[in-house]
Amino acid sequence: MAIGAVIWTTLALGALAGIAPVLREVVRPRIDGARDTAPGAFAALSRGRTHYRWHGPEGGPVTVCVHGLTTPSFVWEGLVPGLVAKGHRVLTYDLYGRGYSDRPGGAQEAGFFVGQLEELLVDQGVDGPVTLVGYSMGGAIAAGFAARHPDRLRELVLIAPAGLGHDLGPVARLVARGGVVGRWLMLAVFPMSFRRGCEAEREVPTTVPGIVDRQQAELRWRGFVPAVARSVAGILAETQDETHAAIARSGVPVRAIWGAKDTVIPLSRKARLAEVNPDAYQYVIEGAGHGLTYTHTDRVLAAIMA
């Protein structure tokens, strides 16, 4: 083969490899087709349909649970029965880009998700005080809502909350810078990395049946990986020190729960929260990693109800 042909073949193969992650994303099915069997219901909000579920007795004190970056609202399935047993009326929902909710484009900064929560509460007629529980990235969303609407909260519960410092790995650090390269890296590398991370918890006891397979199934749907990328470059790139200081000034009771072995939101962030909100009650669950809501559910529930 002539040198010129070798060069062109190499360039063509390189171009194909370059566009392959984009093509894989384009041919993935939309989530719409899976909604017929979805539990719960859907709210038509300004940026798209949002999947939600109510649990527990009507008339009970309302608790709203906000999930994190990659695992949709089913992450709460182990915790919700305990809250319901205590008489709570619990609302869980899928953030945009996850679960059964729509995948709108655009930046996913804190205001993007706070707006979704605001609209959902209006749609559901929730106008009284609520207990707001946020896990991981959901903690950053819950904090943003609390700073904006302190009068709407009975209490703010943060479980391994983002916004005070975290480490999602070297690829996430590149993605956080934004740009075409970051988005391409996310499409090319994240699916394999995500599967590997999920598989690492395959033998870990959990209160959410089939959670590893259900987490990985999110990769099937178009828009999930781009949504994760937008969140990494958006809300997860924001520092919430002033947000938590505003919550402290407002007097909203704050309860924070940390995993002693968490490598994503490390325990050292507990000290940072204490600096900006000295009045926050803080609990450490020994032996727990970042999946503490489903691996150490009883102890998380006890900390919430303490």
Rank of each mutant, 00 (worst) to 15 (best):
A41Q: 04
E203C: 05
T37Q: 13
F145I: 09
E119V: 06
R148W: 01
I265V: 15
R154V: 02
L69E: 01
T92K: 03
T243F: 04
V212T: 12
R30L: 13
P129C: 04
G223N: 11
G291Y: 02
S231D: 14
V66Y: 01
A229Q: 08
Y135S: 13
R28Y: 06
R202T: 10
P170Y: 01
L95Q: 12
V130Y: 02
A172G: 04
L236P: 02
D94F: 02
M186P: 00
I247T: 11
A162K: 02
Q108Y: 12
Y52D: 08
I7S: 06
A85I: 04
W258G: 00
G163R: 08
G197W: 05
Q282L: 08
L153K: 11
F42A: 11
L23A: 15
W54F: 07
V252H: 05
R214T: 07
R28S: 09
V212F: 09
F42L: 08
S46I: 04
L16P: 03
Y52T: 01
F42V: 06
A271Q: 14
A15C: 09
E119I: 03
T71K: 00
V232A: 06
G78L: 13
G259C: 11
T206G: 11
G105L: 14
G60A: 06
P150V: 07
D279Q: 14
F113G: 00
V133F: 05
V130M: 09
P209C: 07
G291P: 00
M1S: 14
V62Y: 02
V90A: 01
V157W: 03
A160F: 00
V208H: 07
R173P: 00
Q124L: 15
S73I: 03
A245T: 14
A20T: 15
R148K: 14
A43T: 06
V189E: 15
Q124K: 12
R183S: 13
T293M: 05
R53G: 01
T70N: 13
A271S: 12
R173F: 00
G223A: 08
L23E: 06
V276S: 06
S46Q: 08
T263V: 15
A256V: 05
L11H: 03
G48Q: 12
G165M: 04
G178H: 11
V126N: 04
M137T: 15
P57A: 10
A227V: 01
P72I: 12
L132K: 05
I159M: 08
I265L: 11
S250L: 05
G59S: 05
P209S: 10
